[in-house]
Amino acid sequence: MRYVQYFIDAVALGSLYSLVALGIGLIFGVMRLINLAQGELLMVGGYTLFATNGWSVFVRVPLVLLVIVGLALLMERAFRRLRSAAPATMLVMTFAVSFLLRSIAQKRWSAQGKSMNIFSGLSHAFTVGQLRIRYVTLVSIAVGGVLLLGVNLFLNRTDIGLQMRAVASDRRIAQALGVRTNRVVVTAFALSGVLATAALLLFVPQRPTVTPDFGLQIAIVALIGVVVGGMDRLAPATFGGFSIGFANSMVFSLLPTGQRVFLDSVLYGLVIIVLLLRPQGLFQRERQTTRV
């Protein structure tokens, strides 16, 4: 029964990381850019929550969404100028943006954690037999599932979703067919902002204090998940994010209490093994080349 408990908790954390990973994957798809500042979306959203503690949820949630999506669109604007630059240049640029935002946060709010209370009811738990399940666990799994399904439908059933897949596959040709690539990229950034908002709101009950590094810690783990899953395609990237969250929670639960400081070592040890065995990504099929 103990393991069922671990499993449910792990699935919940996995869903959260899969949302962040999907956001990273969407942007990588349309821009071939790893946005190292992705975590700062969560961080800035976190400080927005801190600044509005006590306000009505009905104001705070739309406000956080607005701030995060707005920041995502600003990032897109900043990166747009460098779109034809070398990939390394763009990568450094995203790192610079991440560093800048974290520095501003540190200057403004110091490195000390600030509490952000929202949906405090979600931290409560109910018991089923020996299982003790927090509401946030169920909500995380449900929201994660719904959003992943929603993005999937968006990509597969709408015109702009199709254009997004085309841009991810071959930007030059998509543009030559008339696809407004700027609009597609903006949509991808906005979408990743929505996903970051959902992830943030669901992270709060288990990590209720925001620091300048709050987002970085989440995004780095999600990014590793994306690499482990295989970043070329969205589904493996998302599933990679899920796996790293799942493994994180599982290893944490299984390690004896005194040994939990080794969580990261065990986790990244697993990552190294996975990458040695399957460098193309854990869930990536062998690349098919169908040039005739």
Binding site: D159, L162, Q163, R165, A166, S169, A174, L177, G178, V179
Partner: peptide, 15 residues
């Protein structure tokens, strides 16, 4: 677009 269907390729042509 090799990973899209024939139909989806045509839909992109309509853009």
């Amino acid at each position: 677009f090799g990973d899209l269907t024939v139909d989806e390729n045509l839909r992109l042509g309509m853009v």
